[in-house]
């Protein structure tokens, strides 16, 4: 019998997410956020999305933690002391309702791995069948990202580039 890892991983995900919000110290909060990213990467890998898991592990657990830490070291000490007001009545009512609504909507989603679901019936079979003949690339994900959907990836690269430019313009004073 195969032990199911989904439930413990999801519980760990929820625990780290709640801990990152609840904890008083901002440094612990950042490290918990890194743990959250790593748990999320494990869940992606468990669901079979290895490429996404790789990106999440490297960016969410690695690079984002470094950037958050550098930001924390550069802020004034008085900014890092946290005062958290108690949640208002509207928050307490609206957000559980929203959660129930989302769970209700999630009932209608197709089963995981359902071959007849719209996502896997429309254009994915053509990609899976033809990508090796078209581009001699064994990894279908790379072939879709870089060849069939190349323009999307280029615009994503533009987004990253403009993020770097914006950081430089806002934060740097000397040339």
């Amino acid at each position: 019998m195969i032990f199911s890892f989904e439930i413990p991983l999801l519980l760990l995900l929820l625990a780290t997410a709640a801990g990152a919000i609840m904890v008083k110290d901002l440094m612990s909060s950042i490290l918990l956020l890194g743990t959250y990213g790593f748990t999320l990467a494990l869940i992606w890998a468990w669901l079979g999305a290895v490429d996404v898991a790789f990106v999440e592990a490297v960016v969410g657990a690695g690079l984002a933690t470094v950037l958050f830490l550098l930001t924390l070291f550069r802020t004034a000490p008085k900014d890092t002391r946290l005062r958290r007001p108690p949640p208002s009545l509207t928050t307490l009512i609206v957000f559980p309702l929203l959660g129930v609504l989302l769970l209700y909507a999630a009932e209608d989603l197709p089963e995981f791995g359902d071959p007849n679901s719209p996502a896997s019936a429309h254009i994915s079979p053509i990609y899976l069948k033809q990508s090796y003949q078209d581009s001699h690339t064994p990894n279908v994900v790379t072939s879709v990202l870089m060849d069939y959907r190349s323009l999307d990836t280029m615009i994503e690269t533009v987004v990253i580039f403009s993020a770097g430019i914006a950081c430089a313009l806002l934060l740097r004073r000397e040339t």
């Binding site: 770097g164 950081c167 000397e174």
Partner: peptide, 20 residues
């Protein structure tokens, strides 16, 4: 190249002097 340069550039921006 784009991602690597951007990551290093953001770190240099964040650690620049006299921001505080």
């Amino acid at each position: 190249v784009d991602v690597a340069v951007t990551a290093v550039s953001i770190v240099f921006s964040l650690s620049a002097e006299e921001i505080i």
